[in-house]
Design a protein around this nucleic acid. Structure first.
Lengths: 94, 94
DNA sequence: CAAACATTATGTTATATTACCAAATAACCA
DNA sequence: TGGTTATTTGGTAATATAACATAATGTTTG
């Protein structure tokens, strides 16, 4: 007999939700090879600084990425390599 | 230099988006051990048949699950075991 | 074939997300 | 210090999603 607890999967679902946006997923993929700065993302994606910043905040809140302020710039990187395995899994099926 | 193609990650992001809802993620977890029928989910979650069916359709469209009609019921199962590795990765970090 | 059951589709409303702008904050340099 | 660059925050409008009720479709079984 299956048993559902509403609060059970909320936090975990949030990680997937964070990855569930084309721009955010792209950002995560770029971080696979190493850290990047916010301005690089802004230049490549071609949206407002604030939009990228908001996407980064969502990924950070979900625990997928972490940041590091050096000089004038903020650099982001993945918190854990298993994220990459997840990407591989999804790439294989699409 | 980073390069962003808008259509690039859309389909892959859709897989994550499908998993990014508490009820849908719970459903996927239940399928980890083997197939289940729609009516089992409805009974456990306590929402409308149509709501569960809609969630299942989203997961199916994303390619995460597949269905199999036998007798009066429709049984769902995961399309690929690597989904489970993704769940493990996320569980470890939450 | 028709009744009964299981699932899907449609329309609607409440809520959540997205992206932009403008303003605030922070770090460096002249 | 004052100016410039890099980033975050808050407000807002357009769009997307979620959940429900109800209607429609499809299958099995009598």
């Amino acid at each position: 007999m299956l048993n559902y607890d509403k609060t059970d999967c909320r936090k975990e679902a949030n990680v997937f939700k964070a990855l569930g946006h084309p721009t955010r997923l792209w950002i995560v993929k770029q971080l696979a090879d190493g850290e990047h700065c916010v301005c690089e993302f802004v230049a490549a994606v071609g949206v407002d600084f604030s939009t990228i910043s908001q996407h980064l905040a969502i990924l950070k809140r979900a625990g997928v990425i972490t940041d590091d302020k050096r000089g004038k710039s903020v650099y982001y990187r993945l918190t854990c390599p298993c994220i990459l395995a997840m990407l591989d899994c999804v790439e294989k099926r699409t």
